[in-house]
Design a binder for these strands. Structure first.
Lengths: 260, 260
DNA sequence: CGAAGCGTATCATATAATAATACTTGATAT
DNA sequence: ATATCAAGTATTATTATATGATACGCTTCG
C-alpha cells in the first residue's frame, strides 16, 4: 500500500472520496465491481466503503439492481456550499434582474484553478441539459468567462495561462490553437469583455464580463450564452453587453473582502 | 470507541463525512476546534480528517485565518447528482417554459424521506436568497410541494405522514396544528393541487402539483411561489394553476421506470 | 445443467488510525 | 515589552481498526 505516508492523512477517508468522485455525467449509477474498477480499489475495500457511504446516506442503493447512486445528500452539500460563497449571495438578485431584462440564459462562473465552474445558472430558453446544470467545470481557456477573467491578469500571468492551461476539443470548432486564444484574450483586455463562438456547443455564442476583486484581478465572470441563429456579435454588443457590463460591475466587490 | 461495530463499516470515512455535514447556512466557515465541537470528534481526529479533506480538495483552507470552507468540489458532486437523477433531465425544459409563461419562480421538489428537497429552482423575481438555493430541505408537511405529494398517498400512508412527520416553525404563522394540515391535504386530494400561505416566509403563497409515478403515487412536485402582495388565491387558480398542472402532468412518467 | 459474474460474509494479520502530549504561533492585554 | 491564552501544528507509542484473501450464495446465460 503506497499511500501518502503521513500520519495526518487518513487513507480510508480519501478512498471513500474517490468513490464519490467515480460518478459523473456518463457514470450515473455504478455496481460494486464497476466502482472498484473506476476507483482502482479492490472489491473488498469498495464493499466496505460503499456500504459505509450507504449507511451514512451518501449513496442510494437500488434494492433490486444493487447499484449505487448519488443521494440527495449531494445536493445538501451544494446547499451548504452556496451559503459559504460570499459572491453568490451578492450576485443572485442582480443576475435575476439581468436575465429578465435580456431574456437570455445568464451564468455566474468562478475560477477554479485553470478551469471555470458554473456556480449559478439562470436558463431562459430551452437549451441542452448540460447548459443548465450547476457545477460544470470547463477549461478556462475555452470559455468566454474564463477568457474574461484571464484578461484581467498581469501580462505575465496571462501569458502563463495561455501557454500552460489545459485545452480540450468539445466541438469540431473548439479553438485548440493558443495563438488564436491569445488574440481573443488580447481583445478582451482592450474591450473589457470576451466573446467566443462554437466552443462548447456549435452555434452558441458566449459573452462574458469579469468580476474583479479590489486588486483589479478577476476571480469570476458573468456570462451570457445565446444562439448564433438569432444573434450576431454586433447585436450582442449593442443589446446585451451594456447590461452585462453593468451587472458585472455591480457585483464586483470594490472594497469588501472576499474569498480567493 | 463505541462505533457501529461492523467489519463492513469504515469509521474513519463516516467521521470524515460528519465534518462535511458540519457546514450549513449558519456555519459557512469553521476553524479546527469549531469543527471538533460541531462534529463531536476530538481535536486530533479533526486535525487528521480535515487535513485529508483539504489535501483531497474537498475543503478550502484560508491561509490566513486557517478556517475551512466547502470547496468547488461540492458543486461538482451536485453536477454528478443531476446527471443521475432521471427526473431533472426530463423536467428542466418544461420548467423553463413554465417559468417564462407565468413570470414567477418555479421549483422542482423531490420527496426525501419526510422532507422535500428543492432539486431545481428557476427564480424570476428577486427573492430571499434561501428561496433561490438548490438543496434546501424542508419538512414536507409545511410546504405546498410536500402536501401535494402526500395527497397522492393511500389514506393510511397519508394519515401516517400527517401524524408523524416532523414540523418546525419557520414563521409565526407556520402551521403546527396537524388537524389544519390534514384539512389542507384533504383539499389537495380533492383538487389535485396544494396551496399554502406564510409557511416558510410571510406573505408568500405556494402552489404545487404532484408529479406521479406509474403507480399513481407522487415522488416529486412542481411548485410555484408568489407574493401575497400581488397575487390572490383566486388569481393563482385562474392564471397559474392550469399551466402548472399541465407541466406536472407532462413531467410525470406514465410508463417508464424511475428512481424511488 | 454448468459456468460465469456479481454481491455478500468471514477472519487472521499487521497496517494505519488513534489520542495524548508537547511544541509553535499569533493575538490581546497588562 | 512581556505575559497569557487560545488555536493550530507536530510527534509518538499503542492497539484498535481497516485490510484483502477466501469462500459462499444467488442470478443469469448459453
Amino acid at each position: 500500500m503506497e499511500k501518502k505516508q503521513n500520519t495526518l492523512y487518513v487513507g480510508s477517508l480519501a478512498k471513500g472520496l474517490r468513490l464519490l468522485r467515480a460518478f459523473d455525467e456518463s457514470h450515473t449509477e455504478l455496481s460494486l465491481v464497476a466502482l472498484a474498477e473506476r476507483s482502482g480499489l479492490d472489491k473488498s475495500a469498495v464493499q466496505r466503503l460503499a456500504n459505509t457511504l450507504h449507511i451514512e446516506g451518501m449513496l442510494d442503493k437500488d434494492p433490486v439492481t444493487r447499484r449505487f447512486r448519488p443521494s440527495h445528500a449531494w445536493l445538501e452539500l451544494a446547499y451548504a456550499y452556496y451559503w459559504s460563497d460570499q459572491l453568490v449571495g451578492q450576485a443572485i438578485p442582480k443576475l435575476i434582474d439581468l436575465s429578465q431584462e435580456i431574456g437570455e440564459t445568464v451564468n455566474l462562473a468562478e475560477l477554479s484553478k485553470d478551469h471555470i465552474i458554473y456556480v449559478s445558472r439562470l436558463p431562459c430558453q430551452r437549451t441542452y441539459f448540460a447548459a443548465t446544470v450547476i457545477g460544470r467545470r470547463l477549461p478556462a481557456l475555452s470559455t468566454s468567462g474564463g477568457r474574461a477573467i484571464i484578461s484581467t491578469f498581469s501580462p505575465e500571468d496571462r501569458e502563463e495561462a495561455i501557454e500552460t492551461w489545459p485545452l480540450k476539443a468539445f466541438t469540431p470548432r473548439t479553438t485548440l490553437d493558443r495563438a488564436t486564444i491569445r488574440n481573443s484574450i488580447d481583445e478582451a483586455v482592450q474591450q473589457g469583455h470576451a466573446i467566443s463562438s462554437d466552443q462548447m456547443i456549435l452555434s452558441e455564442i458566449g459573452v462574458a464580463c469579469p468580476i474583479t476583486g479590489p486588486d483589479g484581478r478577476a476571480f469570476a465572470a458573468v456570462q451570457c450564452s445565446v444562439s448564433a441563429h438569432t444573434w450576431t456579435r454586433e447585436r450582442i454588443r449593442a443589446e446585451i453587453l451594456p447590461r452585462l457590463q453593468d451587472t458585472a460591475n455591480a457585483i464586483s466587490p470594490s472594497s469588501q473582502v472576499h474569498r480567493r
